[in-house]
Design a protein around this nucleic acid. Sequence first.
DNA 1: AATTGTGAACCTCTTCACAGCT
DNA 2: AGCTGTGAAGAGGTTCACAATT
Lengths: 211, 211
Amino acid sequence: MKKISDSTIHRLSKYLHTLETLEKNNIQTISSEKIAKIEQITSANFRKDLSFFGSFGRRGLGYNVSSLKIQIQNILGLNRSWNIALIGIGNLGTALIDYNELKRRDLHVRCIFDKNPQKIGKKIKGLEVLDIKRLPEEIKKQIIQIGIITTPAPAAQHIADMLMDAGIRAILNFAPKTLAAREGAMIRTEDTTTPLQTLTYYLSHTKPATK
Amino acid sequence: MKKISDSTIHRLSKYLHTLETLEKNNIQTISSEKIAKIEQITSANFRKDLSFFGSFGRRGLGYNVSSLKIQIQNILGLNRSWNIALIGIGNLGTALIDYNELKRRDLHVRCIFDKNPQKIGKKIKGLEVLDIKRLPEEIKKQIIQIGIITTPAPAAQHIADMLMDAGIRAILNFAPKTLAAREGAMIRTEDTTTPLQTLTYYLSHTKPATK
DNA sequence: AATTGTGAACCTCTTCACAGCT
DNA sequence: AGCTGTGAAGAGGTTCACAATT
């Protein structure tokens, strides 16, 4: 299959959310022009993104909101449920366990791990914190497909390796450190401080608008 | 000033973290080749990123870790402290209040807001949850420069407008919805579910490596 | 008349390759 | 000899503009 750019996938995920909102507001049809305005992109960009996967609109009429929503769900692999293991039970990890936006998309945190003996055995939001040593067996037992790393940076690569050893091919890493992925595996690093730094950069290099 | 791409700023933020780690390990000098390997990019990409801001290395020798670190901090506007207001006290908001990576960079959450009367007046991690109505006055009183939105999506644009009315020019939005920014203001939207959807896309469109 | 789907043009970012400095 | 800094080439992503369709 042709390689699709990361930006396209990123935007598809946004379109999906917008379509869900439109559907909730009982809007049945939408043109590329209108959705582009909401997304703050050009309509050609929207149409081109979709064109990589097929043609989903009707010329002269636009797109059917509900059916396009389902099509994008299918493209993104959201037409099924996914099981997640989360490693590192700090503030962020705890927040993610029952994050509603995940559940809504049928993305479920099934097991949680930490290496701190003080935390192991405790129940958090209905899940028992397991010893990190039990990761390989639990990944298999619970049929986990995705790992989320919310440990401090120094531990992150080791955890990623454990996950990949256990057959995990998709990892979301919140530790602020680029991790090495094996052949056939994908690791996405999302550092919360990075977007803030683009903001401090912006503030430092621009002046307030004068009106 | 010449427009610098988002990707460059994004990478600078990563370089900074890597340099901090190198410094901690008492490494004094590094070549673009070595740092590129850590970042999983090409060395030309690293050098070009820096070249937009000046020349920081020494031909034949490489870069001094400590001084490059400071230079990048300066570029990113991290040579000073910044005050943050956080709106929406859910799981994610609570997690961010005392996130160590922020404090380490001198980014401080100074005041927190919610509209839920059940939450207003409660103390969370040493900060009192304030009524959202008090936002304008507190922004001024506490000299806030950055807003972080962790409310549900439907409230997000209204909060962003309140922030911009109060003179805030930089907003980090965790609500899964593209927000409209005014002239002279920047809003970055970081949806936690989006990177997960790039992973489900990846899993759905690739096969495990066979060895 | 309205709006999609898409080749071609355009623009932006990345990589190459090498002159220039240490 | 080793490594940076950068103009030029190359790759990739976005927008234009219009034929095709309802």
